[in-house]
């Protein structure tokens, strides 16, 4: 996995609560068997005026200019600022893949849906939880200042404004560690193979019906 230490970038808004994963990447694009290429269809239904189909040339599609991220001032944004319960709904990992492919590295919100939050961590995309008040404040700054940028330092768990303001955020120690080191989670778990095997032997003697039933 790609490591995440520190990132500085332009902030873009997704100013609504409860953005679900189908809004992030609509279901028709889930038929791909690949992990990449979802960025052009990020927020597809909001971003374009026509109906999106897999495999289209998106550069010629009519854009919805009322959609904030289409405004030139947010072009190249790599930090997404949004509202509570971001990523709710379906468990599709295509959502963080699409955000990542579009170029986002950090998402800041007052809360995230559990599965989505997890899925971000597995892809080196950093979900940052700040309070409702802090997020509100950042939205104001974002709308007020053209080219509003933030820095996010994972080693210190801080979001830093150019003006010097600092917001602390919490992230589990193990998630932070994986991200900072860019660890291969499967590889790490497999280092405990012997423990897993011992567990299986014990369990098979206690609950034998679990094993060998499906063949």
């Amino acid at each position: 996995m790609r490591a995440f230490l520190r990132h500085t970038g332009l902030v873009g808004p997704m100013d609504r609560a409860n953005v679900d994963t189908d809004m992030i990447i609509p279901k028709q694009f889930l038929k791909s068997i690949k992990r990449s290429g979802f960025g052009v269809n990020l927020f597809d239904e909001l971003r374009y005026l026509d109906e999106g189909e897999p495999g289209q040339d998106c550069s010629t599609r009519p854009q919805n200019m009322n959609f904030a991220l289409n405004e030139p001032r947010y072009a190249g944004a790599s930090i997404l600022l949004t509202r509570k319960n971001f990523g709710c709904g379906s468990s599709r990992e295509h959502a963080p893949w699409a955000l990542d492919d579009y170029g986002f590295r950090v998402i800041i919100a007052p809360s995230f849906a559990d599965i989505f939050y997890n899925n971000c961590l597995k892809n080196g995309l950093l979900p940052v939880i700040l309070s409702e008040k802090e997020v509100e404040f950042l939205f104001k700054e974002l709308y007020r200042i053209n080219g509003f940028c933030l820095s996010v330092d994972l080693t210190k768990s801080e979001v830093i404004m150019d003006s010097g303001g600092i917001f602390k955020f919490h992230i589990d120690e193990f998630s932070r560690d994986y991200l900072i080191k860019g660890l291969d989670e499967i590889g790490v778990t497999l280092q405990s193979s012997e423990t897993i095997k011992r567990y299986e032997i014990k369990r098979a003697s206690q609950h034998p019906w679990i094993f060998g039933a499906i063949e």
């Binding site: 599965i115 499967i186 897993i196 299986e200």
Partner: peptide, 15 residues
């Protein structure tokens, strides 16, 4: 529910 990275993790480790 789990994400696709976790599907791979469960396949590979049963954990």
């Amino acid at each position: 529910g789990i994400g696709t990275s976790e599907v791979e993790h469960v396949l590979a480790t049963q954990c």
